[in-house]
Amino acid sequence: MTVTMPTPYARTVHGSGPGLLLAHGAGGSVEANYGPIIGGLAAEHTVVGIDYPGSGQTPDTHEPLELDDLADQLVAAADAEGLGTFAICGYSLGGPVAIRAAVRHPERVTALVLSATFASLDTRTDLTAAIWHQLYESGHHLLLAQYMTHLALSTPALNSLTPTQVRAAAEQTASAVPAGTGVQVDLVRRADVRADLAAIAVPTLVVVTTRDNLIPAPLQHELAAAIPGARTTELATGHLPFLEQPNQWLELITGFLGRAQDRP
Rank of each mutant, 00 (worst) to 15 (best):
L205E: 01
T149F: 08
G238I: 01
T58G: 04
A224P: 11
A119C: 07
I131Q: 06
E107L: 13
T233N: 00
A157Q: 10
T237G: 00
R104L: 12
E171W: 15
V188P: 02
V166T: 04
V183N: 05
T7V: 13
A87N: 08
G19M: 06
G84W: 10
I38M: 10
G25E: 00
G56Q: 04
L67A: 05
L70E: 04
R104T: 12
A87K: 12
V97W: 10
R259I: 04
A174D: 07
S29Y: 03
T173W: 10
A23D: 03
A111P: 14
T2S: 14
L135V: 06
D122H: 06
D79H: 08
D126L: 15
S29D: 01
A152F: 01
R167V: 06
L250H: 13
D60W: 15
H150G: 11
P96H: 00
P178N: 04
W249P: 08
V30P: 01
G25R: 00
P96Q: 04
E171L: 15
V183S: 07
A174I: 10
N247S: 11
Y147K: 13
T128G: 14
G39K: 15
E31K: 12
I215E: 00
V208W: 00
E63C: 08
P203G: 02
V188M: 07
G35I: 01
V202T: 09
A77C: 14
Q220W: 07
P36T: 05
G35S: 09
D186Y: 13
P218A: 13
D69Q: 00
T7M: 09
P64I: 00
A130H: 14
Q184V: 02
L205Q: 03
T233V: 12
S120E: 04
A169T: 10
R259Y: 09
A43T: 10
A195L: 05
Y34F: 07
E44C: 11
G39R: 15
A201R: 02
G139M: 10
A226F: 09
L257V: 11
S16K: 14
E44H: 14
W132F: 13
L144C: 09
Q57S: 13
Q248C: 14
A217V: 03
A168M: 14
V207G: 00
L219F: 03
L83N: 13
A168S: 09
P218M: 11
A10T: 02
T164V: 01
A32E: 07
L70N: 05
T58Y: 05
L142D: 07
A191H: 08
L41T: 09
L144K: 04
R259S: 14
R190W: 14
A111G: 08
P241R: 08
T233S: 03
A174Q: 09
R259A: 14
D69F: 00
A98R: 04
L144M: 11
V207W: 13
D68G: 08
Q57Y: 15
A71E: 01
I88L: 07
A170D: 07
T12N: 13
G25N: 02
Q73S: 14
Q73P: 11
W132C: 01
V13S: 08
T125I: 10
Y52I: 12
M5H: 12
G95Y: 01
V48L: 12
R11D: 02
N213F: 13
I215R: 01
F118L: 15
Q184F: 08
P178I: 05
T85I: 09
H24C: 00
R104V: 12
Q73E: 15
V166R: 05
G17H: 02
S92W: 00
S16C: 10
A226R: 09
T173P: 06
P264F: 10
